[in-house]
Computed example of a mutant assay.
Amino acid sequence: MALSSPSEQKESAAYMTHNDIRDLVKEVIKSELKTAISNMSETLTNELRAVKDEMRNMRDSMSFINIQYEEIIKQNNINSEIIKNLQSEAVDMRSTITNLNNRINQIEQATRANNLEVQCVPETNGENTFEMIQKIGNAIGYSISESSVTHCIRTAKINRSSSRPRSIVVQFNSRKTRDSFMAAAIKFNKSNPHDKLNTVSAEISNIKRPIYITEHLSPANKALHAAARSRAKALNYKYVWVRDGRIFVRKDDGANYNLIKSIDCINKLV
């Protein structure tokens, strides 16, 4: 066009119709869109690649977590089985220990078969415990000789702060002698309900204090006896007694007796 004359340029320009302009615009738009789409596609590709990488990392993390979780579940199942076995063993051991304690208690009680415990006898310096037992025997009408007693001694206090005198444990030479002495004491108290065995009637002291004669219980049975008396008192039980190392309670004269073998038996009293 630069080589053409002005008249030729005007003539050529006259031939640029609306269709030509529209086509030219289309070409420009198409070119721009292609460039824009290319740029957008590259951007999306990069972003999708980043998302894929992130998803791959998440998948790897989830896979690792799942493996760890499976290991935890597996170990938990193993631990649960171990705990179950230990609990079963603990139950067996508790049962065994209970049985052993019962057997030990029976043996301890059996060693006391010839013994009586005399409570609340005042203590004095240089005292002769056998002479005190002789005086008690004379008071209840059952005389005893030195040959009928193999051992006679004060016991240690369980509660050292208590002002109550230490008990005297008497070991007789036979079960029969022990039972006869005990029967005489029971008979005396029944015959003298208002003046039961005491320090004055036994000529042990001028100050009147009651004297109690009981079977010599093992430590376990003594604790059980104390618990039974406390529970019976709270429930207004009329009778609590010991026979041959066994503890009994009875609500009243018309009720059946209950044998107290353990704390569970006491807790079931109503």
Results as ranks from 00 to 15, higher is better:
residue 2 A to W: 04
residue 261 K to Q: 14
residue 193 P to A: 10
residue 203 E to G: 08
residue 11 E to K: 15
residue 8 E to P: 01
residue 267 N to G: 01
residue 237 Y to L: 06
residue 146 E to K: 09
residue 129 T to A: 05
residue 173 N to G: 07
residue 165 P to C: 07
residue 35 T to A: 11
residue 95 S to N: 15
residue 201 S to Q: 07
residue 56 R to A: 14
residue 228 A to G: 08
residue 94 R to N: 15
residue 137 G to C: 01
residue 127 E to D: 11
residue 111 T to R: 15
residue 53 D to M: 06
residue 194 H to Y: 09
residue 195 D to I: 00
residue 111 T to C: 08
residue 227 A to R: 06
residue 75 Q to E: 04
residue 25 V to I: 06
residue 138 N to Y: 06
residue 226 A to Q: 09
residue 228 A to M: 05
residue 79 N to V: 00
residue 186 I to N: 03
residue 257 Y to F: 10
residue 24 L to Q: 02
residue 20 D to R: 02
residue 34 K to E: 12
residue 154 R to S: 05
residue 144 I to V: 10
residue 74 K to Q: 04
residue 55 M to E: 09
residue 212 Y to L: 09
residue 102 N to Y: 08
residue 114 N to P: 06
residue 245 G to R: 08
residue 34 K to Y: 08
residue 102 N to H: 10
residue 260 I to Y: 10
residue 183 A to I: 02
residue 103 R to P: 00
residue 270 V to L: 06
residue 123 E to W: 03
residue 6 P to T: 13
residue 112 R to L: 13
residue 134 Q to M: 02
residue 240 V to T: 12
residue 242 V to P: 05
residue 62 M to Y: 11
residue 81 E to Q: 04
residue 269 L to E: 06
residue 52 K to C: 13
residue 76 N to T: 02
residue 207 I to T: 12
residue 106 Q to N: 15
residue 7 S to D: 07
residue 270 V to D: 12
residue 57 N to Q: 13
residue 63 S to F: 04
residue 237 Y to V: 03
residue 111 T to E: 13
residue 234 A to V: 07
residue 177 T to W: 00
residue 206 N to S: 13
residue 1 M to L: 12
residue 123 E to L: 04
